[in-house]
Simulated assay, not measured.
Amino acid sequence: MSGAPVIAFGQQPCGFFPRRFLVAKVWTARRLQKEMGGEIVFFYHDADHDPRETQTTLRHRTTDEAQTLNFTFENKLQRKYTPLYAKRIPADWQANTARQLGAFVSAEAIEAFKAVHATNVADFCLEMYRAMGMLEGVRVVRSSDPAVRTAACAIDDHYADVPCEGETVRARCVAGALKLHRGGSAYQTLPPCEYGPAQISPARDSRLGWMQSVIGCTHYIAGAGEQAYLRTADAPDITFVARDEIDRSSEAYVDLPV
């Protein structure tokens, strides 16, 4: 590719305080930008639906004991199948969580947390990351954005966001049918319905090409997990860079600014 570098990294919302591996990706991107210039792009995969992605592991400031917190959800269907951008935050969750944070984070971090105004999980995480300074100078591309979805290349391996029992669910397309994974080898097949590109998001193995068709990056920063499954041959125009190392990578980063 010609022109200025486009340095990208991707991640689902990964805790209301970001996991340390995401912060390491940001630091790696900033280091590369200092070396070669160009733009940093964060591919924010907020169309994922797994509630485990937003588990937030904090360390007690006195005992150093780890404790994991998460969002609460309005119902079981929403918790398990609704995309993170559509998982609604119950009215009392933020205040209840803020009361627990004093043992784990600074007063400044608590005030930043309390100042976030968002009605869904993905927006809350993103606004918290912004408040921490993590996204300064970074362009965010969201996988839930209808404009992004309609601009992306067509893919056969995908999910579709469709209505189900009063909620939006992220259903996997399998042999032309939409299915919800019930666990193990069990699936629930949804009634047939029409859907279009604005409702489609990629599966794990189709994500790289789908993302690249929108952002056209020259360099992609890959985490340890991504390095194990990314099909780099699908994107020969990208230079792949391993993210910088960081200790306790799956725990939350709570220092301001990032």
Rank of each mutant, 00 (worst) to 15 (best):
R149C: 05
R149M: 07
R149G: 03
R149H: 07
R149K: 14
T150H: 08
T150E: 14
A151C: 05
A151R: 12
A151T: 06
A151G: 08
A152C: 13
A152L: 11
A152K: 06
A152M: 12
A152T: 11
A152R: 08
A152F: 12
C153T: 15
A154L: 09
A154C: 07
I155C: 10
I155A: 10
I155F: 12
D156P: 05
D156S: 15
D157S: 13
D157I: 04
D157R: 10
H158P: 09
H158R: 14
H158I: 13
H158C: 15
Y159C: 02
A160D: 08
A160Y: 06
A160R: 00
A160T: 04
D161Q: 10
D161Y: 00
D161S: 12
D161N: 11
V162Y: 09
V162A: 07
P163T: 09
P163Y: 08
P163H: 09
P163K: 07
C164F: 15
C164L: 14
E165I: 02
E165P: 04
G166L: 13
G166M: 12
G166F: 13
E167S: 14
T168P: 09
T168N: 12
T168V: 15
V169P: 08
V169W: 06
V169S: 08
R170E: 08
R170C: 13
R170D: 09
R170I: 06
R170T: 05
R170P: 08
A171T: 05
A171R: 01
A171M: 05
R172C: 08
R172P: 01
C173T: 11
C173H: 09
V174F: 07
V174K: 11
V174T: 11
V174D: 11
V174M: 11
V174Y: 07
A175G: 10
G176S: 06
G176K: 02
G176R: 02
L178M: 02
L178N: 01
L178S: 01
L178C: 03
K179D: 01
K179L: 03
K179W: 00
L180K: 04
L180G: 03
L180D: 01
L180I: 03
H181L: 09
R182M: 15
G183P: 10
G183R: 02
G183E: 10
G184H: 10
G184R: 05
S185W: 01
S185V: 02
A186V: 12
A186E: 15
Y187A: 03
Q188K: 04
Q188L: 13
Q188S: 06
T189Y: 00
T189M: 00
L190Q: 04
P191V: 02
P192D: 09
P192I: 01
C193N: 02
C193Q: 14
C193E: 10
C193L: 12
C193P: 01
C193G: 05
E194L: 13
E194D: 15
Y195E: 10
Y195A: 06
Y195N: 05
Y195G: 07
G196P: 01
G196F: 07
G196Y: 07
G196V: 00
G196T: 11
G196R: 09
P197V: 03
A198N: 06
A198D: 13
A198C: 05
A198Q: 12
Q199F: 00
Q199G: 00
Q199S: 08
Q199R: 04
Q199I: 00
Q199W: 00
I200W: 02
S201K: 01
